[in-house]
């Protein structure tokens, strides 16, 4: 369906206006100007912040520079989450541009994974794709792919090439028609009210009676508190790629169209704005 293809494009080309400022505690030789960028939602911070690094290094001495990391309002940003997930989870209801603080020292190594090179991002990304395919097809599709096919997925993401990526990714989205969907839906639910970083469990796209499971069914099973009960005021927003999909949307459709390039459906449950 032409409409559904448009959804894939809209998701891929989603951008977040962002303002990077240098942490005031960094030692600089002169004042650092903020740096503005449109960040692709589906990418990862280390892949799109070369210019940010270059910009701030101009005012710093090499000996004051350690591994770069990012923070929003006191929370270190996990580079291994897609940028759109970081924004939806931490900054959905704040004013744009998204304000990110750049650090070059005191790397928080309990909270953040190190990312010395972009090959770390590649390893992470491919590992997520593999895991998603373990859930969707018992790893059969990803294992049947050749090394160059894996590279195509990665290069598509790294170079922001929608067609290159989707020419390969569509294979990961196939399923036997008679089964009505994947074996399990690869998803992660992020909640502000939970100590653990996310919920990830087994959930099938179709019920045992053969009915398609919806986003509502998933939330009811995984985090019922996130749902608004009858007569109650809405406390939480369920956000995917910056929008609130209808809860009656079939999960299989969401998995095929609103998953990130890592093939996981990332769902953020955030407090509803009070005003």
């Amino acid at each position: 369906m032409a409409d559904d293809k448009d959804v894939l494009r809209d998701v891929w080309f989603g951008r977040i206006p962002t303002c990077f400022t240098l942490n005031p505690d960094e030692v600089t030789e002169r004042e650092a100007e903020p740096y503005y960028l449109l960040l692709p939602r589906v990418s990862y911070l280390p892949l799109v912040t070369d210019k940010v690094k270059k910009h701030f290094l101009k005012v710093m001495r090499t000996e004051d520079v350690e591994e770069m990391w990012f923070e929003h309002e006191g929370t270190p940003l996990k580079w291994h989450y897609p940028i759109g997930v970081l924004f939806d989870f931490h900054a959905s209801n704040t004013v744009l541009p998204w304000s990110i603080t750049v650090h070059f020292k005191n790397f928080p190594d309990v909270d953040l994974l190190h990312c010395p090179t972009n090959s770390m991002v590649e390893a992470h990304f491919m590992s997520s794709i593999k895991e998603a395919d373990a859930l969707k097809h018992k790893s059969q599709v990803v294992n049947d792919m050749q090394k160059k096919d894996h590279k195509q997925l990665w290069m598509g993401l790294q170079n922001d090439k929608f067609d290159q990526f989707w020419a390969m990714n569509r294979k990961l989205m196939e399923y036997p028609t008679e089964e009505g969907g994947f074996r399990y839906i690869p998803f992660r639910i992020y909640q502000t009210t939970n100590d653990r970083p996310f919920i990830q469990r087994l959930f099938r796209p179709v019920s045992t009676e053969g009915n398609p499971h919806t986003l509502f069914d998933l939330l009811k099973e995984m985090c019922p508190d996130a749902l608004t009960k009858d007569g109650e005021e809405k406390r939480f927003q369920v956000v995917i790629h910056g929008i609130e999909p209808l809860l009656e949307t079939p999960l299989q459709w969401l998995s095929e169209h609103l998953s990130h390039p890592d093939n996981f459906l990332h769902i953020c449950i955030i407090p509803a704005p009070t005003d």
Partner: peptide, 19 residues
């Protein structure tokens, strides 16, 4: 061995990939 986020603690750990 690679670094990976601990799925329950959200902290940086090392792990042996299970695939």
């Amino acid at each position: 061995i690679t670094q990976q986020e601990h799925p329950f603690l959200g902290q940086a750990f090392f792990y042996l990939h299970p695939c």
